[in-house]
């Protein structure tokens, strides 16, 4: 790799990181696992004078459960996939993490990097939308909470300011939920052609109590299929509701012909995956 010259920092605390970000602002970029950033630098698609590696900051690497599931952004994707707490409390997240790229990428890539990079093909944004996750964001002036649905603004664009740090991922919808990540890839690439994250809980009468649906690579950025979610609440999952929900889900998508295939072919496959996915999850309860 032959990137442009850059200066490299590896602070070991959040306060040192804050100082660096305040100093270098837009000329700096946080590097977590580096598996999106390094290729961009290597191909000289981007040039960043100050790279700040956060892998030495222990306070950003944790998985805890205290009423809510709380995850540090530096948690490696492989750890997210195999962590026992996450597996117990959030099936959707561990399932999706296990489907990110390949073992080498999972070993280096992080959940926070996946979220903040906001590549429309990244897997974690849609998962976070399906989980109605909240993000604790910190800078030298203090912390605030941003909901996942307010976080992803466009391709590679989030609600983060240049001096903001994602410090915690908070997932509240854990008890009695079950979910899965349905990812469609081509033969030669691990990136999703598209994917659907579904997180569901049921009422006593077998109707849907709550459901979150996040979509990967079906629009400029990860999106939440809100109309489909609202429609399915308090309904049973059957052929008709699946069909109606899919038509509503399409409203959240902007599918185009591209190198992966034609719009109509993709919609057909998407429908199969969505309907089978909903029914599959429903059956588990």
């Amino acid at each position: 790799m032959y990137p442009d010259k850059f200066e490299y920092f590896a602070p070991d605390s959040i306060s040192k990181l804050e100082q660096l970000l305040d100093k270098y602002k837009d000329d700096s970029k946080i590097m977590a696992g580096g598996h999106s950033l390094i290729p961009l630098l290597k191909l000289r698609l981007t040039s960043i004078p100050y790279i700040i590696d956060i892998s030495n900051i222990k306070d950003l690497n944790f998985v805890e459960y205290n009423d809510n599931l709380e995850i540090g952004p530096m948690t490696r994707t492989a750890e997210v996939a195999s962590n026992k707490i996450i597996r117990d409390k959030c099936k959707l997240l561990s399932d999706a993490a296990s489907k990110v790229a390949d073992p080498q990428v999972r070993n280096m890539g992080t959940v926070g990097g996946d979220i903040c990079e906001a590549d429309p093909r990244n897997d974690m944004p849609a998962v976070m939308l399906a989980l109605n996750a909240e993000f604790e964001v910190t800078n030298s002036k203090g912390s605030r909470i941003i909901k996942a649905e307010d976080f992803f603004e466009d391709a590679y664009t989030t609600a983060l300011e240049s001096n903001d740090i994602l410090t915690k991922i908070i997932i509240k919808n854990t008890e009695n939920y079950y979910g899965k990540y349905y990812k469609y890839t081509t033969l030669s690439s691990d990136f999703a052609v598209f994917a659907i994250a579904i997180n569901m809980s049921l009422n006593g009468d077998k109707t849907v109590k709550d459901i979150g649906i996040g979509l990967t690579n079906l629009n400029n950025t990860a999106v939440k299929a809100k109309d489909a979610e609202d429609y399915l609440k308090n309904k049973r999952i059957d052929d008709k509701t699946c069909n109606d929900a899919f038509n509503l889900l399409l409203k959240s998508c902007d599918i185009e012909d591209d190198i992966n295939g034609k719009k109509e072919d993709k919609e057909k496959i998407l429908k199969d995956i969505f309907v089978n996915g909903l029914k599959g999850i429903y059956k588990v309860f």
């Binding site: 349905y182 990812k183 469609y184 890839t185 052609v193 295939g261 496959i269």
Partner: peptide, 11 residues
């Protein structure tokens, strides 16, 4: 052949 539905699959 370039047909997205051939041999590809949902992981």
């Amino acid at each position: 052949i370039d047909d997205i539905s051939l041999f590809n699959k949902c992981v």
